[in-house]
Design a protein around this nucleic acid. Structure first.
Lengths: 320, 320
DNA sequence: TCTTGCCCTGAAATGGGTTTCATACTGTAC
DNA sequence: GTACAGTATGAAACCCATTTCAGGGCAAGA
């Protein structure tokens, strides 16, 4: 492998000059620049980027922590991140964790070892304490609704979004309302739960613990959710479901078993996926790609810790 | 940032010894090992991985070239790759290209500059000529049905899989059969096209050029596909659709407009996604995660160029 | 006793850039 | 004519680990 030294020799200049040409620095005379360029061409030279990384102390690599990759919610965020990262000349290393602590730590270790310039956490299982430990090694951006002073964050106001959903369902006349979450203890979930409890209390409706379902992520979980719902003696008349994928699974299974939506059970989802559009599912549209884009923006300006909240929109369709 | 030199000083040994401890080499006396470990602990040392990369000439990073990330087909392959890559201590850098040549080249350049140890190409737009240029910089694995002697490949026998699908549709009595592809000129597509032409000729059925549709990737494309199909004077009675996502889009749109499946039009998809299961779509199951896994296996053994083909399975359901 | 081989250790070479600093030259302003 | 600013250039320091090589110590076998 030819290196910068050989180029320097071949072009009859010093390595500094070669480096200057390579990095478009000023103060290189046209003729030397030319001979360096020729030498590069002649010797078929490529820079060893690992040496550059070592020297510069950065890699232009951003880590993304997500639980699942094959999921519309995270897929959309990743899309947003990817686009914006490309715009600032960065690449993406995906850490698909399945909520495994080890895997998350792996990502943070790579930050510590300088293989990553920063990390965007789309969803996590590690405690805040862990994140604080690693914070000194580089910017960590959280895609969650937090006020943690040490980290920039970008999120949807899940409390407000869920409230909006619930108020709409209530306004439509439903009294027995249940909802499903991914993991009960995630930040986003806790906001949704709080919203649920507050609004239900405000309207003096039944708050039945049984009507809170967990583990709703994928379309197949929707099938299970339907089974669970269907096997209840006292069924809620409306369900606010974690995401459109699960909602779709629920609705498709419901149809098979002759359950009518929204007559037998009203369904409201989140995300406004293509699938929800196809199935005409009432949903809350979330600006997921924007979350990704903003996360990269926040990564770029690590000096200022900001907490950005993005807007949502109720999409009225046929399932409520 | 403390480095290996400081550790050596602090522990009263040479850097070589520190390196040996760090890398679990034999031939370090227990007491020296202990004092090194203590020094590492005391100074809160972390290795700079970029230096290791430079020194070792590898990064344990595998690049993946995919057109879309938020797509079940590629999502599943990426899942398989991720799992197996983790098993061998590698991480994944995703290049989502949207079939943009530039983006693909970017990935290859990173291989050339040694930021990647290898590349798995799930689908590409660059010509083989380009790949051959970059081949010398590291293993490139193709997830396509090729016999190119220079590259290992892993694929489904798309010719056979498509033939199987088509024979089944024909056996069910359909005579006017159309099909859809992603991009006409991709390798996989060309195998499907060949299979289609061969089988149709064999059975002496109509081969109507109009019944070949293109650009079918996502669920929304299925909606469009239905519009196209529906607006034809002479409609095919059965459609073999690129993938289940598009098939689902077609079927859901069809239902809205009162078109019955399979009575008005039979539908057969590919992949056997969760969605196809939910919608009871007849499909060809493809071992996508296995493609990913095998791709990593092939990457690991770059000395032997192999062309692996995986099996498929017809899943009979209600849409044919 | 001598060889051979294994264990242990450190100096130095190696991987390949970037960047600072010192120096020198040129042109312009006063 | 003197300062000063700007342009050009190379030597050397720096980023940080891995790995080769050489050498010393020690034990077992001849």
């Amino acid at each position: 492998m030819t290196n910068i030294k050989e180029i320097a020799q071949c072009a009859g200049v010093s390595v500094s000059t070669v480096s200057r040409v390579l990095n478009d620095h000023p103060y290189v005379s046209p003729d030397k620049r030319k001979s360096v360029l020729e030498a590069i061409d002649r010797l078929n030279y490529t820079r060893n980027i690992n040496a550059i990384h070592l020297s510069k102390g950065k890699t232009n690599l951003i880590g993304i922590i997500i639980p699942f990759n094959n999921h519309p919610y995270y897929g959309a965020i990743v899309n947003g991140i990817t686009k914006q990262a490309n715009a600032i000349g960065c690449h993406i290393v995906i850490f698909q964790t399945n909520y495994d602590r080890e895997k998350e730590i792996q990502a943070f270790n790579m930050l510590q070892m300088k293989q990553l310039d920063g990390i965007i956490v789309c969803s996590r299982i590690s405690e805040m304490k862990i994140l604080l430990d690693y914070q000194k090694y580089g910017p960590i951006i959280l895609c969650e609704d937090t006020a943690q002073a040490e980290f920039s964050s970008i999120s949807i106001d899940h409390y407000a979004a869920f409230s909006c959903a619930l108020e709409y369902v209530i306004a439509k006349g439903y009294k027995k309302i249940g909802y499903s979450l991914g993991r009960k203890k995630s930040r986003n979930s806790s906001h949704r739960t709080k919203a649920f409890n507050d609004i239900i209390r405000k309207h003096k409706l039944i708050n039945n613990k049984e009507w809170l379902f967990e583990g709703s992520y994928h379309i197949k979980d929707g099938e299970q959710l339907f089974q669970d719902w269907n096997s209840m003696m006292d069924k809620p008349e409306a369900l606010i479901i974690t995401n459109d994928d699960t909602a779709a699974g629920f609705i498709l299974t419901a149809k098979k078993s002759g359950t009518r939506v929204p007559d037998d059970v009203a369904i409201l989802g989140f995300n406004n996926d293509s699938l929800s559009e196809m199935l005409d599912i009432t949903t809350i549209s979330l600006p997921l790609e924007w979350i990704g884009k903003m996360a990269v923006d926040l990564f770029e300006n690590p000096e200022v810790v900001k907490h950005v909240k993005l807007d949502y929109a109720l999409i009225k369709r046929s399932t409520v």
